Simulated scan of single mutants.
Amino acid sequence: MAKLILTHEVTGLGAPGDVVDVKDGFARNYLMPRGLATVWSKGAEKQVAVIRSARKSREIATLEDAKAIRDSLQSKPVVVTAKAGASGRLFGAVTTTDIAEAAAAAGAPAIDKRKVEIGQPIKAVGEFTVLVRLHPEVSATVTVKVVAA
């Protein structure tokens, strides 16, 4: 077993700053190469405090605020404009950054791109559903409408 400090949120494992024990292969082949975790050591405990304080500043403070943001995000679809071919296929894909920026431009409260989870890559014009984790207890299901530019 390998003891690691998560530097990014990993679904099903933990949030940034968490110290986790995972199997060696998972650490060596998935978490470490993608930069999602670093090796734990006594000196790295200082790094954990920095990661946790940065996470606290980005998080939504209360459950009520998270529910209010969820209601505003779910009330109307987020419209993302992207370059597309004649068949409706996009040149590239819609990213979490695109969705977060489009939501902010539409007047919704700012959301962190790292909290947006896209199930399947969005590579065509149409309506898609994405999950936004606003708080440990609150998630929003947001409709993303992709239109051709």
Rank of each mutant, 00 (worst) to 15 (best):
V125C: 02
L13P: 00
L31K: 03
V130T: 02
F26W: 08
A15E: 06
D18G: 09
A148M: 14
V50W: 09
T81E: 12
T97R: 15
P33A: 06
K123T: 05
I99P: 02
P136L: 05
R70N: 10
K56T: 08
A82T: 08
G119P: 12
G25C: 11
M32Y: 07
I60K: 11
T141M: 14
L6P: 04
T11Q: 05
V20W: 05
M1H: 10
V144Y: 00
V22K: 06
A100S: 11
L31Y: 05
G12D: 04
F128A: 00
A82R: 15
S41H: 03
G17F: 04
K23A: 13
S87D: 11
V50M: 10
E59H: 10
T11R: 06
V79K: 01
T7F: 02
A27K: 08
T81S: 11
I51Q: 03
A44K: 03
L13H: 01
G43Y: 12
G126C: 07
E101M: 12
E127L: 11
D112Q: 11
G14M: 02
K56R: 13
Q120G: 07
L73D: 02
K42I: 00
P121F: 08
A44R: 05
L90A: 03
K123P: 05
A27N: 09
G92M: 04
I51N: 04
E59A: 15
A124I: 04
K113R: 11
D21G: 11
S41G: 09
H8S: 14
D71M: 05
P77M: 02
V130Y: 03
A2N: 15
E45H: 10
A2D: 15
T7L: 06
L6H: 00
K56F: 05
N29L: 14
V146S: 01
L90Q: 03
F26C: 07
A2L: 14
M32K: 06
V20N: 08
R58T: 13
K145Q: 14
V125Q: 02
A110Q: 10
K67T: 03
A2S: 14
R55D: 09
K42D: 06
T11H: 05
V48F: 03
G88E: 06
K145R: 15
A86V: 08
A103V: 01
